[in-house]
Design a protein around this nucleic acid. Structure first.
Lengths: 210, 210
DNA sequence: TTCTTAATGTGACATACATCACACCGAAAT
DNA sequence: ATTTCGGTGTGATGTATGTCACATTAAGAA
């Protein structure tokens, strides 16, 4: 017996987007309501400030040097936020999966050019929020500012933990931490990328895991 | 011709605290007004949620294992936020000087035990804000939530930059970056601490600077 | 299928950095 | 003045990790 969702494959692209977009909206709402509760009207208002977008593998949402127009909420799929240094080596700040907010926030808030790039590892669905729309959103519904304050706190704390981990632990320990923290990612992304995230060469990572 | 401030030395401790505390309040207000403007009444309201405190060298504001009751705004002096690992090695997350907000935010927001410690390197003046008072403050004056949202964004961005710097650069480059970013700290704090901040041994740091 | 390219493992060697040991100096304590 | 001790520099040596090279396999493209 087949799941009815399988049949969506046969529908037109627009139809697919419409249907899946409803499921996506439910996810966004659920995500927000973990922190602030919303009436239906309020959620409709919130939603009107976002646009939804599908991203294909290898597509860039942000490229270094561009202006950064959006902050992204990832509903599904997988992206990576990274920086490429002068020697063309890529360093990964973090992966972004379901339920993550991601952008080059430095460039986003200061309306300057990106120093990071954000691209897609697995076909993804994201909600996009521009800085101007976020301001309108806060003006019309102040509790959303509270929501983002909490989110920002978590982000800050997570980033600080990462600093600490880079300061205190060896490559091997970081690798083990990573396994614990993101077991699924070991399968989903290639080892070179994980090495770039951990701050070691891919050869070293290979030796660590064997 | 002497500055009138010199004479404060002869006043009683209480009197000194009172007078300096007025100057401190002005600093706090100026700091906040860089982001949101306040009427006199509003500032009085804000201030009523803070307590002011002097901290002496070697005094701890947070010790690992304790509950974290406050977030601190540093008016003057110098503190360090650090973590001591299993091998008794200290790692410095950051120094905190004039105009910085600092705490073990993970423990503060989740009301759990501190994994970081915050102690004083140079006699300091700090404003203390408890989590409960911050909530009251936001309830009474929502624009303060906006203020802290901006602050949190900056903190997050700065922390991300630090991650990037640890991922991309060598000890020598980090040392040079540090010189650029905090020239005054090279004089103010001993080299071992700077080494702990940069994530290298004090011997290596010594060799880098010669 | 066959060809081409990407991902991964592994050896040999180079190097940045840690660790241990000790010397020197200047500031505080006695 | 003498002693003690924290801060700093520096040599000798060890080690984790990077780099380069090449082989193997898996995955896409034609």
């Amino acid at each position: 017996m087949k799941n009815w969702l399988d049949y969506i494959v046969f529908l037109s692209w627009d139809m697919k987007t419409l249907i899946s977009s409803n499921a996506m909206q439910a996810k966004l709402r659920e995500h927000i309501e973990k922190i602030v509760s919303l009436t239906d009207d309020e959620f409709t208002f919130v939603l009107s400030h976002f646009s939804f977008r599908k991203v294909k593998k290898h597509q860039f949402l942000i490229q270094e040097g561009d202006l950064v127009n959006y902050s992204y909420y990832v509903v599904s799929g997988l992206l990576k936020l990274s920086h490429t240094d002068a020697n063309d080596k890529e360093h990964i700040l973090h992966f972004a999966m379901e339920d993550w907010w991601v952008s080059d926030y430095k460039a986003y808030f200061s309306r300057t050019k990106a120093t990071l790039s954000l691209d897609c590892l697995e076909e993804a669905g994201v909600f996009c929020l521009s800085l101007a729309d976020s301001e309108k959103l806060f003006a019309g519904l102040p509790k959303m500012e509270h929501f983002f304050l909490k989110k920002s706190h978590f982000g800050y704390i997570a980033s600080q933990q990462r600093v600490l981990s880079l300061l205190t632990t060896s490559a091997k320990e970081r690798y083990e931490q990573f396994l614990m923290q993101y077991p699924s990612l070991m399968q989903r992304v290639n080892k070179s990328l994980i090495a770039s995230y951990l701050g070691v060469s891919r050869e070293t990572l290979s030796r660590l895991s064997s």
